[in-house]
Design a protein around this nucleic acid. Structure first.
Lengths: 105, 105
DNA sequence: TTATAATATCGTATATTTACGATAAGCGAT
DNA sequence: ATCGCTTATCGTAAATATACGATATTATAA
């Protein structure tokens, strides 16, 4: 993306697009499902469940944290991740709202 | 993305991630809203409403068509676009289903 | 038939994403 | 203090995405 013309777009559309971007990789959806099932996971557990390297998984976790879909608290040498339930619910609402604006939905 | 390891991910997660990718740019969400309001639009009308060049808008339309969120029928020298309501509804369901799996939702 | 109009595609430049291995940084235990 | 474990970050390579102008294509109008 050479030039950022995104300033001219609607703000809530930009936010929603940004969340959609965070959801735009199966590994990240997978991670969300894992965290939902296990409540809390350290990085290593997630790495064991995802067919990607440790560093790549760490990057995906970073992307999910960027949009606050997950929280990570450091516990000694490890990081304990969990869903950020408030943001997950907000995201659900945002998508629901988007689709409810469509006549067909 | 050097190597496609995505084969190992769950199929519905891949599909949902792919749709999320199509929604991951504010211009494309904008286009969906425009098509919802106007029912049918030719490319030129959309170009007039989006602060991007004709060729760029055309690319965004192509991405939305790739995932079948919109349909485009050629009418003479122009293309008439509209929402693919069935796919929009399916997409809504897919997101609803995803979020309903989360305990907090 | 030629010109005009609309739009998709091509070519290109830049930015971002994705992936990996290697390294660094932090903590706990010895 | 050092070693080992965990995890984030760095460096790097390749693939995609985003944007634009220019061109090709197609259908209508003159």
């Amino acid at each position: 993306m050479p030039l950022a013309k995104t300033d001219t777009f609607n703000n809530s559309d930009k936010q929603l697009a940004d969340i959609a971007k965070a959801l735009s990789h199966p590994a990240r959806i997978n991670i969300l499902r894992i965290l939902n099932e296990q409540n809390y996971c350290i990085t290593g557990e997630i790495v064991d469940l995802i067919p990607l390297s440790q560093s790549t998984v760490s990057q995906h976790l970073k992307e999910l944290k960027r949009v606050n879909l997950i929280k990570g608290e450091i516990e000694g040498p490890r990081t304990n991740y969990c869903l950020n339930e408030a943001v997950v619910e907000k995201t659900k609402s945002a998508f629901t709202k988007l689709f409810s604006t469509f006549k067909c939905c």
